[in-house]
C-alpha cells in the first residue's frame, strides 16, 4: 500500500489556532490570567519550530559531521542553561560542569544508538542523529533539573543530619549518600514510569510521527523501544554524573557543607 504524506497547508495550520482561542476564552471566563502566556507560547511555537525546520533542512542538506556535532552541542548548551535557570538556589555554580558532563554522556548515548543499535552509516547522519539526540537532551534535561533541585533542597533542609554524620567521622560522600539516592530516584522515576505506561496509556510522539509519515507500526515500535531504553539510559547517566558533580561542589575540601540555609 502506497502512503502519501498529507502536507498541512497554511490555512489548515491557521485553523489549529481555534484551539488557542478556546483556551483563551476559558482563561478570560475563569480569570486564569493565562491569555498573555498562551499568546506568547503560541507565537514561540510557530517561530521556534519554523526556525528548527529551516535549520534541520540546512543541516540535512550540508551533511557535515562537524555541523551536526555543533548543533548537538548547541542544544546541550541551551539545555544546561535551562537547568541552571530552573534551579532556584544559585549558591553553587554548576553550569559548566553540568554542560560538559551532559555533552559527554549524551554524545555517548546518541552515538551508541545511531552507530551500533540503528546501525546508521555514517553514524552522524543528521536525519537520525539530531532527532534522536534531541530526544535524549529534552527528556534528560527535566530529570537532571528535578534531581539537582531535590539534592540542593535536601542538603539545605537536612543540614543537621548531614553535619551529625560529619561530626561522627563521615566524609561528605557518606554524609550525603541517602540524599544523593533520593535525588537520583526523583530524577529517574518519571522515565521508569513512562516505560511502564508506554503503549498502554499513551502512544509516544515519535512513534505517532513515524506512523503518520507512513512507517509500518512494527518498525515504529522497534524504534520506540530503542528510544525508550535510550532515554532511560541517558537519564540515568546524565542524572548520576551531574548530581555527583553538584554534590561535590556543595562541600569543600575540609568536608564542610558550603550551602548556607535560606
Amino acid at each position: 500500500m502506497e502512503h502519501h504524506i498529507i502536507d498541512i497547508g497554511p490555512y489548515q495550520l491557521a485553523i489549529c489556532l481555534i484551539f488557542v482561542v478556546i483556551s483563551g476564552i476559558a482563561s478570560i471566563v475563569y480569570s486564569l490570567k493565562l491569555e498573555k502566556d498562551l499568546l506568547i507560547g503560541t507565537v514561540r511555537t510557530f517561530v521556534q519550530l519554523f526556525i528548527l525546520g529551516y535549520v534541520l533542512k540546512f543541516v540535512f542538506a550540508m551533511s557535515n559531521m562537524f555541523l551536526v556535532i555543533g548543533v548537538f552541542a548547541f542544544m546541550i548548551f541551551f539545555a544546561a542553561w535551562t537547568i541552571y535557570g530552573r534551579v532556584k538556589d544559585k549558591q553553587i555554580h554548576f553550569f559548566f560542569p553540568v554542560f560538559v558532563s551532559m555533552l559527554l554522556s549524551f554524545f555517548l548515548v546518541a552515538f551508541l544508538v545511531t552507530a551500533v543499535v540503528v546501525n546508521v552509516k555514517p553514524w552522524w547522519e543528521p536525519r537520525y542523529f539530531i532527532p534522536l539526540g534531541g530526544m535524549v537532551i529534552g527528556n534528560s534535561m527535566n530529570a537532571i533539573a528535578i534531581a539537582i533541585e531535590r539534592l540542593i533542597g535536601d542538603l539545605k533542609s537536612k543540614r543537621g543530619e548531614i553535619e551529625m554524620k560529619l561530626c561522627l567521622g563521615a566524609d561528605s560522600r557518606e554524609a550525603s549518600k541517602l540524599l544523593l539516592q533520593k535525588a537520583m530516584q526523583a530524577g529517574m522515576i518519571p522515565s521508569i514510569n513512562s516505560m511502564m505506561a508506554v503503549g498502554m496509556v499513551f502512544i509516544p510522539g515519535m512513534m505517532t510521527g513515524q506512523i503518520l509519515s507512513g512507517s509500518d507500526p512494527l518498525i515504529a515500535i522497534k524504534y520506540q523501544i530503542v528510544v525508550m531504553i535510550m532515554l532511560t539510559g541517558s537519564t540515568a547517566l546524565g542524572t548520576l554524573i551531574t548530581v555527583l558533580l553538584v554534590r561535590n561542589r556543595c562541600f569543600n575540601k575540609a568536608e564542610q557543607l558550603v550551602l548556607k540555609p535560606d
Partner: peptide, 19 residues
Amino acid sequence: TAPELRRQVLYIQQTPIVT
C-alpha cells in the same frame, strides 16, 4: 583530615538527631 579531627573533637548538636 576533617574526619580525624572531628573524631577527636566531638560536637554534639543542640537538637538530637537520630536516624
